[in-house]
Design a binder for these strands. Structure first.
Lengths: 170, 170
DNA sequence: TCGAAAATCATCCGAAAGGATGACGACAAC
DNA sequence: GTTGTCGTCATCCTTTCGGATGATTTTCGA
């Protein structure tokens, strides 16, 4: 049930769905309107269908991505809370790794910054990171600079080193 | 490039996109076909549009979910690898660290190159490394390029990662 | 619902890193 | 003495990073 709640009772999602419906309605209305105003070429049904299909497929993909993204964020915060307590008694063998939130907090490193640090540590370039996270390269660079600043690092290799020293990275 | 590779050069993704296109084409074809076979009710364009829209929106959302899911899976497997390998080469706290000479030999990595890899892993820039080793920056860069080539790395962060995986670096 | 924090994106610039290629001396192995 | 490897250095060029700055949008908590 929680999954549904997260998706449906989320105001952000509500707005997206609303926009989705609105755009759909508008499109249909436009279609109907144009039918009376302009000359409809023969066999235009499939053309319209294709257009609408492409449009909505794109929008659908975007929405799908969007949904999972916000779901991931929610999940992350939950996980952090969850892991926090057993962290003291954690076996060093199997754990999915819990970053040292104490250090993270004192340094003021945000979740997103840590996420990017992680990808840097895995050897990805800024462009690759941008692609993976569905943001622009500029954004990644901004996060990088801020994270480096907070870590007192001048380079990404140094940032990775510091991150591992502080238990922020696996 | 790897980010794009994960999504676009992924056989699973390719199949999805293929299916996506196929379904789209089939739908359009069906639409065209039915136009000649059945009686088309008046104002059916918007009906068809709505139908197609809903269908493709659903499909799009599904695809979006699918994409992010496989992306997560890929990321997870990477993590598993990362955790798995260095586990065996984990130093028992005190040893001054002995690099895996077997891997070093098979890859043809020279001592000097390993030395430079080590300094890279410690977060030094090429210039700093040059100063420490009393050689020119150009020399350091040459060693870097050769080492990266042997390790199959495109970046120093990647080289460090590979080096640790192979037990060449502490 | 208001404001702070976070995330996003952009542009500009200089520095660092990466890639290709050629060259030269030292040294060991054949 | 020839060959091959290694270390050294250089030049030229392209790409990537890092830093500064400003703006907008999202998100979240009071």
């Amino acid at each position: 049930m929680a999954g549904g709640d997260i998706l449906l009772h989320n105001p952000i999602m509500k707005r997206h769905v609303l926009i989705f419906g609105l755009v759909g309605g508008l499109l249909i209305a436009t279609l109907q309107y144009t039918e009376y105003r302009f000359v409809i070429i023969e066999h235009s049904v499939e053309l319209y269908s294709a257009l609408v299909a492409i449009l909505f497929a794109t929008f659908g993909i975007w929405l799908g991505l969007r949904i999972t993204r916000s779901r991931e964020t929610i999940r992350e915060t939950v996980v952090v809370k969850e892991v926090l307590v057993p962290a003291e008694a954690l076996a060093p063998s199997e754990a999915p790794f819990a970053p040292n939130t104490a250090h993270q907090q004192t340094l003021g490193i945000t979740a997103r910054e840590l996420e990017i640090l992680n990808l840097i540590a895995r050897g990805f370039s800024n462009r690759e990171i941008a692609t993976q996270l569905f943001v622009s390269e500029n954004t990644v660079k901004t996060h990088c600079v801020r994270a480096f600043d907070k870590l007192g690092a001048a380079r990404r290799t140094q940032a990775v080193l510091r991150g591992k020293e502080l238990g922020l990275l696996p």
